[in-house]
Design a protein around this nucleic acid. Structure first.
Length: 476
RNA sequence: GGCCCGUUGGAGAAGCGGCUUAACUCACCAGCCUUUCACGCUGGCAUUCACGGGUUCGAAUCCCGUACGGGUCACCA
């Protein structure tokens, strides 16, 4: 049987990193097994739907490099792919269950139910299940919901792709609503119906869905359907080991934000694939095609995946280093322009700027920050750098010589600057670390940084001279 | 509280009963390279797998208990 998986977002907001991961693993699984990847829109919460939700979800999936075989914009023969367009289907099956005596109409109001629950809670009960008081109520007028009659004394066991055998007992589940007052299905019901009707063979989703599984299984069973294979991936947690909450400010959570910061889609794809999964290979910098061939659902982790920001930065940096100069310029240019940087400079200047920072650039927008720290008009020397330079024997003659060498340069190029360094070394008999470090510190203020001649060239003669003078005055 | 799940170095993680004197990656440290820095390369960094018991010739790996952490209990998805 052909593998068919689905990613089923609700259009209530932008693409979240957790959802992106679900989508990504379903995609990987489908591609790995030459199956179909379907995107189904679960928009049954009409109060929370956002106008642009669908478009936003789909466009960011696409940006990440996930393409689908069937969805709202790419019809297959199992559509429609939006749940609000399938209401007749859910209603049909809900009434079928009603006819079979496996479900019943409930006339309780939300207020009544809340009261009931509060009363149970007050008595200290753990199970706040519905009382079933409408189970035998005669047919009456007015709004109603349809509740599924959960079988007594039934165990739901499934072999989870990630967690192996998992069992839930029916006594832990109360009769639940399958069709709301507004005749729209609830999530678990619509999901079960659609998974069957769309021939879904495998369901890969977050662990927060694991308690939904028995509910979906009982619908399948009541309707005489074969449930798909389920796999529940561990949650993504933050540094405090809490589930990523959309309000958590410590982590950037939406794909769009990463895109806007100038993260690369292939890097994000790479990073997300490592969230709760690991390849057998040693290398962790992987492209989409490699990830597809390497993917193995047996390698899905059972312990929570910690969102490691450092790792994301590392991975993105590695992908940036792979970029051609042209691609990197395309990435950085908009941020520089927005910050008003380099307006009067030419393409060559831009290219050398980017080449100088390429090695340490984490994401596109960071180029602005790097630029500003680097060209800062108020030149300051870092503490450890000053300590170092201050104890170098003969540092002042060296810097003076170097300064005059620079002043004598006619056309400033990296090569001319390199010669200036060499000459200063020769004239003052300084070499190695004691030659390069003072020059680096006097011109950049730090002990670490990009390639010296390249960087100095970017700074320009005037600024270099000024910085060396500042350093000299501090040295006394 | 009930039910489900997890716990390996500074960090992310591999490990699926003997090949583990615990892989790999990040960070850190050292060496080489480059007359500096960065890159790159090489090496160092858990005698130990939350704790207690058990099974076994043998356990990070299986079982039980404890502690801690998390998820879930809607006419939300």
């Amino acid at each position: 049987m052909k593998v068919r998986v689905r990613y089923a977002p609700s259009p209530t907001g932008h693409l979240h990193i957790g959802n992106a991961r679900t989508a990504l693993f379903n995609y990987l699984f489908a591609k790995k097994h030459q199956g179909d990847f379907i995107v189904r829109i679960e928009d049954t919460d009409i109060a929370r739907n956002v106008e642009t939700g669908i478009e936003s979800q789909l466009s960011h999936l696409k940006w990440l490099g996930l393409d689908w075989d069937e969805s709202v914009d790419k019809a297959g023969d199992k559509g429609p792919y939006r749940q609000l367009e399938r209401l007749d289907l859910y209603q049909k099956y809900a009434h079928l269950l009603l006819d079979k005596g496996l479900a019943y109409k409930c006339y309780c109001t939300p207020e009544e139910l809340a009261e009931e629950r509060d009363a149970l809670k007050a008595k200290g009960y753990d199970k706040l299940h519905y009382s079933r008081k409408c189970l035998h109520k005669p047919e009456q007028d007015g709004p109603y919901t349809i509740r599924f009659k959960v079988p007594n004394d039934h165990a739901y066991t499934f072999n989870d792709i990630v967690k192996d055998d998992v069992t839930f007992k029916s006594e832990d589940i109360g009769d639940w609503v399958i069709l709301k007052r507004n005749q729209i299905p609830t999530y678990n019901f619509a999901c079960a119906v659609d998974d069957h009707l769309m021939d879904i063979t495998h369901v890969l989703r977050g662990e927060d869905h694991i308690t939904n599984t028995p509910k979906q299984m009982m619908i399948m069973e009541a309707l005489g359907w074969e449930p798909p294979r389920y796999g529940h991936m561990t949650l993504i947690v933050n540094e405090q080991h809490k589930k990523l909450s959309k309000r958590d400010e410590s982590i950037i959570q939406f794909i769009e934000q990463y895109k806007n910061l100038g993260f690369l889609p292939e890097a994000l794809f790479n990073f997300i694939a490592l969230l709760g999964w690991s390849p057998k290979s040693d290398d962790e910098i992987l492209d989409k095609e490699t990830l597809i061939t390497l993917f193995d659902e047996q390698q899905l982790s059972t312990s929570p995946a910690t969102f490691d920001k450092e790792k994301l930065h590392f991975i993105n940096n590695r992908h940036i280093k792979k970029l051609s100069t042209e691609a990197l310029i395309d990435l950085c240019k908009p941020y520089l322009q927005a910050a008003g940087i380099g307006k009067h400079e030419d393409e060559i200047w831009l290219e050398s700027l980017i080449n100088v920072f390429k090695d340490r650039l984490v994401y596109g927008k960071q180029i602005v920050e790097l630029y500003q720290n680097f060209f800062n008009e108020t030149f300051t020397i870092e503490e450890d750098a000053f300590e170092f330079i201050n104890q170098v024997e003969g540092v002042k003659p060296l810097l003076k010589t170097f300064k005059s060498n620079i002043e004598n340069i006619e056309t400033c190029t990296p090569d001319a600057l390199k010669q200036a360094i060499k000459a200063a070394g020769k004239e003052t008999s300084m070499k190695g670390k004691n030659l390069f470090m003072p020059i680096r510190i006097a011109t950049s203020g730090a002990m670490h940084g990009p390639d010296l001649p390249q960087m100095m060239n970017l700074l320009g003669q005037k600024r270099l001279i000024h910085r060396i003078e500042t350093t000299l005055s501090k040295l006394q």
